[in-house]
């Protein structure tokens, strides 16, 4: 078990009273799984991912990452986190941005160069290392930020709507790349999205969430094979899973629809 949530609750104290971002969340994620979190805006997807990353702290229940508390896992550098915006440092080149975590973690110079070269290849940005972020398109910047999260040896990758701001075509390509990257590296991936096809296409496990209070309404184990060409999205199995996700989302919204 890589990630285990046991009755996790998280309440923000705000000026307008408490906000129950997460309530009694139970979930286990095994090594090498690709887990998507899907749900309407404000259902606590980001909050849950941030809690796994020890950027937020649960107010109830227990959360474990690699058998440790999230904060211990953070200090052990157990995960790479990809934010919704690429968030590259404008004063560093692409290679310099990818080197940032390596510098902080004290890798040697030759090791850094080696790793930067490898991950740039992995996200198909070879030859762009010397460019500055403003010289790259939005999709390329997002790939660079994924490369930054892959550069060091974390076996967990947490991604919060990494492709949210991109158009459908770029998104399809990056989804394919992400799948092949996942197959090659064997990392455990937690992935937040708003898109049902994206969630079904990528995941081995889909977590459907609903808001007020944020909770899990359904966990769907995908029956799709690990090998997924883009046109798998037209198969009956795919459509079947997508239906279940949509139903789960609707159920969570039942009181409002």
């Amino acid at each position: 078990m890589v990630i285990g949530a046991d009755n996790v609750s998280l309440t923000f104290q705000t000026n307008d009273g408490p906000v129950h971002a997460l309530k009694d969340v139970n979930l286990t994620v095994e090594r090498g799984e690709f887990v998507s979190f899907i749900g309407p805006s404000g259902c606590g997807k980001t909050t849950f991912l941030r809690a796994i990353a020890a950027l937020e702290h649960p107010t109830g229940g227990t959360l474990s990452v690699n058998g440790m508390t999230p904060d211990e896992a953070r200090r052990a550098r157990a995960y790479g986190y990809v934010f919704q915006a690429a968030g590259l440092y404008p004063w560093r080149t692409i290679a310099g941005n990818i080197r940032l975590p390596l510098e902080i973690m004290g890798y040697s110079k030759s090791e850094m160069d080696e790793r930067v070269k490898n991950v740039l290849e992995l996200v198909e940005l070879s030859g762009f290392g010397k460019k500055y972020p403003w010289q790259l398109s939005g999709g390329m910047q997002q790939r660079a930020s994924i490369a930054r999260a892959l550069a060091f040896d974390a076996d967990i990758l947490l991604m919060d709507e990494p492709f949210g701001a991109l158009d459908e075509i770029v998104r399809d390509r990056l989804n394919e790349e992400l799948l092949s990257l996942w197959a090659r590296t064997g990392k455990t991936i937690g992935f937040v999205t708003h898109s049902i096809p994206e969630a079904v296409y990528l995941s081995t496990k889909i977590v459907v969430m609903s808001p007020r209070p944020g909770r899990i309404t359904d966990v769907i184990e995908s029956p799709l094979p690990k090998e997924r060409p883009l046109d798998i999205r037209d198969t009956p199995e795919f459509i079947e899973v997508a239906h279940r996700v949509r139903d789960g989302l609707r159920a969570g919204h039942g009181d409002e629809l």
Partner: peptide, 24 residues
């Protein structure tokens, strides 16, 4: 906040945070 959080996920020290993020 996102840039600060990023360094936090790397478990960066306050000195690293200063030289690599705040100062530039």
């Amino acid at each position: 906040q996102m840039q600060m959080d990023l360094l936090h996920t790397y478990n960066a020290t306050p000195a690293q945070q200063f030289w690599r993020l705040r100062l530039p």
